[in-house]
Design a protein around this nucleic acid. Structure first.
Length: 882
RNA sequence: GCCGGAGUGGCGAAAUAGGCAGACGCGCUGGACUCAAAAUCCAGUGGUGGCAACACCGUGUCGGUUCGAGUCCGACCUCCGGUACCA
């Protein structure tokens, strides 16, 4: 066998050791301080691990290992978010049970993760599709059901008769199914909703207590969208009904010139006159056929129909025509608005299109050109009792006026809507709910949980829009053995988010069949100290989990109001991609050098036609020197077959279609897991988006190789360079500065600079003849969170027979961190002219005296008058001269 | 449009509290070792000028504050992420 650093033997050896010895087992209720460090668990897809997953996992692993060295009892678990659509779609195609697909995908993921040497406590592994897990997901649902936080509502779904199934919003394009192009209709269906809106205020207010990225907190605030305003009632002319609207700007009531109802608004029928009925019905049908996406994104041009009805403006008794339009959404506010076209761009466009009056009520704009919307501190006009008032006072005055007369009141409105919790799918948690013959609902008794997913051969949709469970008659019908009463089971299943809302709690007590987790253990481990994952879950997963956690807090299951105190998002890892361009018919292939770019789009140089990018796999790219005769010439990427076609290099999200996916397995087998981990952390700050360059892994492998050769000889034994004894002062200083730097950087999650410090120390040690053990050992410990396999191997070679995982972290000696002398930059008028080595104890006068006699400084001071001397000890000396 | 983040060598990046811009790695160049190559080791590497000492320029753009600005302030440009008829 080849001597030298060989990760392919070292790494499996230590991985097996850690597993056998359960090295990373977390101890429930130990005397040590606890540290709960959590990764966002993955969906085990068929395509395996991606280089993006291990980025966050490596970061948390470094921290987990570091905390163990620092004497913490660390909980660092991993599991599988394994319900979901891909396994079900695969089942429909191949007939393979999603459970089998899940089992084999989990095995692949687990193998890949274990080969990276992460220090998870595998005894706590969880899987959301395990009945002993989803029993508790169902249990939590029941607690919500009991507290009226889960309720049934008629909610439209994207129903596709052509496919006989319900589609997700992203599966619908232009009102047609993505697959097959069949028409899609909005069909109301009775579905479960979770009353997250009941927690809106707490979800919003408690954000302030969290150490989370400001951007995520801001996204959640926007998502919740709490707005203060007023609800105002507009009586309908000739009807007992009133139209209630929500507005953030009651001050503009005098500017209202018409009303608009959402097409689905319940009052539409009542206000519509017979003459308008046909038109109104036609418009309603058209709106019903559009998906939400179309109604918002695509329909920029205002459409609508007059109902024939009128409402009375409560502030001035003016009659306002009532229209319907799909720019008003039934799901926000009251589903109806007062239109103030002078000061709202949407209303302005609508008024222009249908020739409705536009009135100015806040001074300052030109409402003949556009709505004047910068009206936060304007002065009211044309507004009766409000004339001359500033906006803020007008809002108060009119709200009080409305309240006094019972025509409206101050109100708070949220953008957040209740959570649609039903899916018409097989591969999800069944609801623990029964329907009586009369259609009323009943909870499955808790002792009968879990409600198991039934076995079936067919995962195909039922054809009615119900889930495949609806076709399994033997499962659906249920007769109470005592009373003989007959029930039917709920056939919808829960969405993929469900299991993720509480998984961090199950790690605490993963095998408990009496409770979702033991209260004592919960109090010990919670809250999560650090949660790391991708920013794509900024809103939904993190908001839903906070919601469930607060529900569990209210019923006394958990002891903290929030699940995770600190959150960090790792930035996405991108890949270099190379592309040329083709026209629609693909008859021509053009390079970057042959096309024109306009607004980021490639255009044909002659026809001006917009060209489509065509990606080439990175391995196919031919590199060509710009100047063949110049050895230093830059190289450019070229098409492999076409001589003159230069490729465009772009950095983009990794995807199969772009040919820029990097497979971690390949990197690990070629360079080793330690080098892979090191590179992922060395690329740049964790939170930042950054491109992958496989060359960089090679640099890390070289570093590890140099560390190995520093301490080991050619036979794989401890090098004779390693000696007993103490280091000299310069080496001791180096070591302790590195200890301080690496410790600080790990705490700050600045792993890239911590690694740079380790490389520097290694480079320095290579110049030494002898490496004292008292230097080698701390060095190996400092390296161990980053490159644990190599560190264990070196630790063993240094004569230890146990893992280094719980060895105390080296402590920096403060007295060795300060140098006796410092190199001081000397400036004249802010420009560096020389440097001066001075003792840190030198006085200002001594330093200045030495500095002015430096030749280059003297030259710049010659014939000038010093007007000011700035001296910051140990930092800078600057002479301002005239 | 709105919200959030980022612009620094050929590339990834670093710079604690306003104090030597470019640590560290990749790449590249030269050299050593070698029959040769790989690996390894040594040296160099922001640009321009100069034999050199050194000088000038240089952190997206324009302006400001300061003895001194990558860092602070004002205006703008570009890119990335999120979100969007939310009344």
């Amino acid at each position: 066998m080849m001597a030298g650093y060989d990760p392919s033997t070292i790494e499996p050896k230590w991985q097996a050791y850690w597993l056998e010895n359960k090295t990373f087992r977390a101890i429930d209720g130990s005397d040590k301080p606890k540290y709960y460090i959590l990764d966002m668990y993955p969906y085990p897809s068929g395509s395996g691990l991606h280089v993006g997953h291990p980025e966050g996992y490596t970061a948390t692993d470094i921290l987990a290992r570091y905390r163990r060295h620092k004497g913490f009892n660390v909980l660092h678990p991993m599991g599988w978010d394994a319900f979901g659509l891909p396994a079900e779609q695969y089942a429909i195609k191949t007939g393979t049970h999603p459970r089998d697909t899940t089992i084999s995908n989990v095995a692949v993921f687990k193998g890949q993760i274990q080969r990276l040497g992460f220090s998870y406590d595998w005894d706590r592994e969880i899987n959301t599709t395990d009945p002993s897990y989803y029993k508790w997901t169902q249990w939590i649902f029941l607690q919500m059901y009991r507290r009226d936080l889960a309720y049934l509502a008629e909610v439209p779904v994207n129903w596709c008769p052509g496919l006989g199934t319900v589609l997700a919003n992203e599966e619908v394009i232009d009102g047609k199914s993505e697959v097959g192009g069949f028409p899609v209709y909005r069909k109301p269906m009775r579905q479960w909703m979770l009353r997250i809106t009941a927690y809106a205020d707490r979800l919003l207010d408690d954000l302030d207590s969290l150490d989370w990225p400001e951007s995520i907190k801001e996204m959640q605030r926007n998502w919740i969208g709490r707005k203060r305003g007023a609800e105002v009632d507009f009586p309908v002319v000739g009807q007992p009904a009133t139209v209630r609207v929500f507005t953030t700007r009651p001050d503009t009531l005098f500017g209202a010139t018409f009303m608009v109802l959402a097409p689905e608004h319940p009052l539409v029928e009542a206000v519509t006159t017979p003459a308008q009925a046909a038109q109104v019905r036609q418009y309603q049908e058209m709106a019903a056929r559009k998906s939400d996406l179309e109604r918002t994104d695509l329909a920029k041009d205002k459409t609508g129909v007059f109902t024939g009805g009128f409402a009375i403006n409560p502030v001035n008794d003016q009659q306002l025509p009532i229209w319907i339009s799909d720019y008003v959404l039934m799901s926000y506010g009251t589903g109806a608005i007062m239109a103030v076209p002078g000061h709202d761009q949407r209303d302005w466009e609508f008024a222009r299109k249908f020739d409705l009056p536009i009135v100015e009520v806040v001074q300052g704009g030109d409402i003949s050109q556009a709505a004047f919307t910068e009206i936060d501190d304007g002065i009211m006009v044309n507004s009766g009792i409000l004339d001359g008032l500033p906006v803020a006072q007008a809002i108060e005055r009119i709200t009080a006026w409305l309240e006094a007369r019972g025509r409206g009141q101050a109100a708070v409105n949220y953008r957040l809507r209740d959570w649609l919790f039903s899916r018409q799918r097989y591969w999800g948690e069944p609801f623990p709910i029964l329907y009586r013959q009369d259609g009323s609902t009943l909870a499955v008794p808790e002792e009968q949980l879990p409600v198991l997913l039934p076995e079936t051969d067919s995962y195909k949709p039922s054809g009615t829009g119900e889930s495949p469970l609806a076709t399994i008659e033997s499962w659906i019908s249920f007769t109470d053995p005592g009373t003989g009463e007959r029930f039917r089971r709920e056939t919808h299943t829960m969405p993929q988010w469900a299991g993720s809302c509480w998984y961090y709690l199950r790690y605490i007590d993963p095998h408990n069949d009496q409770a979702l987790c033991d209260p004592e253990k919960e109090r010990y481990w919670m809250p999560v100290d650090l949660y790391v994952g991708g920013a794509e879950h900024a809103v939904l997963h993190l908001l839903y989990a906070r919601f469930w956690h607060k529900v569990l807090y209210d019923i006394g299951v958990v002891s903290t109001p929030e699940p995770a105190m600190r959150l960090v998002n790792q930035g996405m890892i991108l890949g270099y991609a190379y592309r040329c361009f083709t026209n629609d018919s693909a008859s021509e292939i053009l390079g970057k050098n042959q096309v024109r770019f306009e607004n980021g789009l490639a255009k044909h140089p002659v026809t001006g036609e917009t060209l489509l990018p065509r990606y080439l796999h990175i391995d196919q790219v031919r590199w060509k020197k710009v100047d063949e005769d110049d050895p230093e010439s830059a190289t450019v990427p070229m098409h492999p077959d076409l001589e003159e076609v230069e490729l465009e290099e772009v950095v983009e999200k990794m995807s199969k279609s772009r040919g820029n996916v990097v497979n971690p397995d390949r990197i690990v087998s070629e360079y080793g897991a330690d080098a892979f981990r090191l590179y992922e952390m060395y690329m740049g700050p964790l939170e930042q988006v950054k491109p992958w360059r496989t060359q960089g892994v090679l640099g890390m492998q070289r570093f590890l190789n140099r560390v190995y050769r520093l301490l080991m000889d050619e036979q794989g034994q401890r090098s004779p360079r390693v000696v007993e004894g103490e280091p000299g002062l310069p080496l001791a200083r180096r070591l302790h500065r590195t200890i301080a730097k690496v410790s600080e950087d790990i705490e700050a999650m600045a792993f890239n600079t911590a690694i740079a410090a380790l490389i520097e120390l290694n480079n320095f040690l290579h110049k030494e003849q002898e490496i004292p053990r008292s230097v080698a050992e701390p060095f190996v410990l400092l390296l161990s969170p980053f490159a644990p396999h190599l560190a264990e191997e070196l630790w063993q070679a240094l004569g230890h027979d146990r893992t280094l995982a719980y060895e105390p972290w080296p402590c920096a000696d403060e007295s060795l961190l300060k140098e006796e002398t410092v190199e001081l930059p000397v400036q004249v008028n802010g420009k560096l002219r020389a440097t001066l080595v001075v003792s840190i104890s030198s006085s200002r006068e001594e330093v200045i005296e030495q500095a002015v006699s430096l030749p280059n400084v003297a030259a710049y001071l010659e014939g000038k008058q010093i007007v000011k001397t700035i001296y910051v000890p140990q930092r800078i000396l600057n002479f301002a001269v005239k």
